[in-house]
Amino acid sequence: MAIESMTGFAREARTVATHAFAWEVRSVNGRGLDVRVRVPPGFELFSEAARKQMSAAFSRGTLHVNLAITSAAAPARPRINQEALAALVEAAATVSLPAGMAPASLDGLLAIRGVVEIAEEAEDAAAALEKPVLAALERLVASLKQARLGEGLALETVIGGHLATIARLTGEAENHPARSVEAVKARLAAQVAALLETGNALDAQRLHQEAALLAVRADIREEIDRLHAHVTGLRELLAQGGPIGRKLDFLAQEFGRESSTLCAKAGDPGLSRIGLDLRTTVDQLREQVQNVE
C-alpha cells in the first residue's frame, strides 16, 4: 500500500439543463481529519453527503470542500414570509404609540429582515441536480485520492533519500577512528594528565573511577544501535504504507533525540561534524513526514 500526502486539489464540474455546478476540494495538512463544506443556501443535503464521503475516504488533513451552483433560468423573485409578516402586524397592534408617532407601515414591515426572502426555487433545483451532483462528488473524492497518492509517491522518494543519508552517516559514526579503544584511551590520558599538572592532590582510585565513568558516558554505541533500529523501523513503515504519518513523525523525533545525544557525546571534531550532519538531515526528514497522512 502506498503512502498518501495530506495535500491535494480536485475539481469536478458539469451542466445539467439550466443549471451549472462545480465541486472543488483543497486538502492541506492537519493533525486529524477536518472536513469543512460550503454549499449554496437550499442545497444543504449535499453538505452532509460531502462530509460523509470525505470522512470515509481520508483519515487526516484539513479538507475545504465547496459547491458552486449557477442557473440560467429566470432570475430569483421576492417571496413574502406571510407568517413572519402576520406576527409583526399582530405585535405592532398591541403597542401603545406615543403622541405624534405614526403606526407601522407596510413598507416598514417589509424592510425587516426575514419578512421578504429573495430566493429561487432551490428545492426544485436540488431535486433535479441530486443525482448528477452526488455522482460528481464521488468522482471528486476519487480525483483527490489520486492527487494525494501522487504527492505521496514524491514524498516517499524524498523521505527515502533522507533515510539513506541517515543510514550512511550512522555507519560513518560507528566506524569513525575516534571510537577506537586506542583513541578513547588517548583522550582520557590527556585529560588525566591535565588534571595532574594542576598540582592538586588527587586520589588515584577516585581518579580511575572518574576516568572509567567518562569512558562510559563518551561511548555512543547505544545511540548508534538505536539509529540503526529506527532506520529499519522507518523502512518497514514505508513498505507497509497507508496512513502512517503519525508513526513517521514519532520516529523522526526519535532520530532527533539520538542525533543530539551523539553530538553531545562526540568528544571529537570528526564525530561532531557527523552528528551535526545527522541533525540537519533529521530536520529535513521531519519536515517531509509531517505532510504524510
Rank of each mutant, 00 (worst) to 15 (best):
L163P: 00
I159R: 06
I80W: 12
A173C: 07
E156H: 07
G100S: 10
Q146M: 06
V133I: 13
A111S: 15
E172I: 07
G100C: 06
G108H: 06
Q191K: 12
L85C: 01
A86H: 11
A92L: 10
E174T: 11
E151T: 06
A91Q: 10
V116F: 10
A167D: 01
R179C: 03
R179H: 03
E90T: 12
L110W: 14
A111W: 11
A183N: 05
I112F: 13
G160S: 10
A147K: 09
E90Q: 12
L137W: 12
E120A: 14
K131M: 12
L97S: 03
V141F: 13
L188S: 00
L153P: 05
S105W: 02
Q82W: 14
L85P: 06
A99R: 09
E130S: 11
G108Q: 14
A104E: 01
A142Y: 14
A93G: 13
L129P: 01
L97V: 07
A154Y: 09
L97G: 02
R148W: 03
T157D: 15
E130A: 13
Q82D: 14
R179A: 03
G114Q: 11
G100E: 10
V181T: 07
A125M: 04
N81I: 02
D124V: 05
L140S: 03
R187S: 01
A194T: 04
H176E: 08
I166L: 12
Q82G: 10
V184Q: 00
V181A: 13
L110S: 11
G114T: 02
A111C: 09
E90C: 00
A127K: 14
I166H: 01
E156V: 00
G108P: 01
H162P: 03
A127P: 04
A92S: 10
S180C: 05
D107F: 12
A194S: 09
L153C: 04
L163I: 04
E138F: 01
A136H: 05
S143I: 00
P98R: 10
A189K: 14
A186K: 14
A136K: 04
L106N: 02
A102H: 03
R179K: 05
A99I: 02
R168T: 01
A125N: 06
L109K: 10
A135G: 06
V116N: 03
E138H: 12
R148F: 08
G114K: 10
A126Y: 08
G171Y: 05
G114P: 02
A128D: 09
A190H: 09
G150V: 09
T170S: 14
